[in-house]
Design a protein around this nucleic acid. Sequence first.
DNA 1: TTCTCTGCAAATAATTTGCACCCAT
DNA 2: ATGGGTGCAAATTATTTGCAGAGAA
Lengths: 134, 134
Amino acid sequence: MQLRMTNQREMILRELKKSKGHLSADELYERVKKFMPRISLATVYRNLEILSDARMIRKLEISGRQKRYDSVLVDHDHIYCVECHRIENLELGTSDVKLPVGEAKGYTITGRRLEVTGLCPVCQKKITKSKKIK
Amino acid sequence: MQLRMTNQREMILRELKKSKGHLSADELYERVKKFMPRISLATVYRNLEILSDARMIRKLEISGRQKRYDSVLVDHDHIYCVECHRIENLELGTSDVKLPVGEAKGYTITGRRLEVTGLCPVCQKKITKSKKIK
DNA sequence: TTCTCTGCAAATAATTTGCACCCAT
DNA sequence: ATGGGTGCAAATTATTTGCAGAGAA
């Protein structure tokens, strides 16, 4: 299967890189629609799938929520806010993970996914504020 | 809000404990239906939510797939098979994780989720078999 | 009796798919 | 020109919700 670089695909890739964030399919759709009003959400989904299969982007499957996509390819973990659901990258240096290499429980290990959950600085402030009001 | 122990709730809890696995809502529904044919899937979902809020069971949100539920309450991580999607518990001893305690990136940390992905023994055999046939 | 819980059906949310036309190669 | 890609609408999958009646406390 040959990949073709269509305008839609190029635009999706460009907007994802531009954002530097972790966008969901519909957030990306909203952004791309500003330049290509006739693009469909299905096209966005299809391209995100194809691009992540081709290892050009990364699909994040975090916590049972919507999938999000990341243009940063290097390995890293994530931290996400239980309150506002924002996701940020977490550098390996910050945490310190040693995992079984090769085998565990008879499994051949192919990877790992590590999410740290917490309250982001913004939401911490919001919560302390609302407590004061009470 | 007072919790009532209805027959449905009791049965859901019993079947989840009996299975010792990581069941999805509809798998549990199928099992419970054998004893209570008129139970509805909505009741299963509502009870799983209530029971996990009450910390009587655990909700697992793994890898963008269906949610699964576990009656084992003690902290542990999971390993899951990328081929057949089975999930197994992973004891802390097997892996070795050191995470930032308290703070990282300005976040107040509340928890972590660690999934190791791999090929389970059964799927490994299947794959080597199918290669031989080729 | 009271108020949570239940079954049913309909609603929602995220994502996928069938189809006929389009366009990058 | 050819076969992958697109837009649209409809289908799927997982989950949630409104409502009227049922039943645990």
